[in-house]
Amino acid sequence: MHGNSHLTPGITEFGQCGSDGAHLFQINANVPVIDALAYSSNLQRCANQLMLDSALGESGEHAKWAAIYLGEMAKAIVDDLAAATRAD
């Protein structure tokens, strides 16, 4: 990795909504990779805990949707970082 490859490129969109499939959010550019990965890991940990709670019947419907959205955000971060490695 060289140049700005230790930063997020900021090209990944997520949060598809509406009938035209527009994306509501986009990963910001120039975030250090280590920080982005840590944030993604925290999002995924929260999503996993919500899914476990849901599987064990310890949560309501809201937890399922929260887990889906957290997982989508975590995936978008990783996808953005993967795009940076393909660009090198």
Rank of each mutant, 00 (worst) to 15 (best):
G10C: 13
N30W: 12
A36L: 07
G60A: 12
A63H: 09
M73W: 09
H2Q: 13
G57F: 09
F14Q: 02
E72Q: 12
S40V: 02
D20C: 08
I68A: 10
M51D: 15
G15L: 01
I11C: 04
A84C: 13
T85E: 14
A63K: 01
M1R: 09
H23W: 00
Q44S: 06
F25E: 04
N30V: 02
A38G: 11
N28H: 13
Q49K: 04
A84T: 09
A67T: 05
N28V: 05
L56Q: 14
M51R: 15
F25P: 00
N28T: 02
H62W: 11
G60P: 04
N48H: 05
G60M: 07
L52C: 03
H6A: 15
H2P: 05
D53L: 12
M51W: 08
T85V: 06
A66Q: 11
G15V: 00
A76H: 02
A82C: 04
A47K: 01
H62G: 02
S59K: 04
A55T: 02
L50H: 04
H6K: 08
A87E: 15
H6W: 11
Q44E: 10
E72L: 09
S19L: 01
D79H: 08
L37T: 07
D88C: 10
E72F: 04
N42D: 12
I34S: 10
G21Q: 08
L81W: 08
R45H: 12
I68R: 10
E58G: 10
A84L: 07
A83H: 05
K75F: 05
G57K: 08
N28C: 05
A83I: 02
M51T: 10
N42G: 15
H6R: 07
L56V: 03
I68S: 03
T12Q: 14
G71P: 01
H62D: 11
A36M: 07
P32Y: 13
M51V: 10
A83S: 12
S5F: 12
H6S: 15
Q44C: 00
L70T: 01
Q44Y: 06
G21W: 01
L56N: 14
M51Y: 11
S19K: 01
C17N: 00
G18I: 00
A22L: 01
A29P: 06
N42I: 00
S41A: 12
T85C: 09
A63C: 06
M73E: 15
I68T: 04
N42C: 03
Q44K: 13
N42P: 00
G3E: 11
D53A: 12
I27C: 13
K64N: 11
D88A: 14
N30S: 14
H23Y: 08
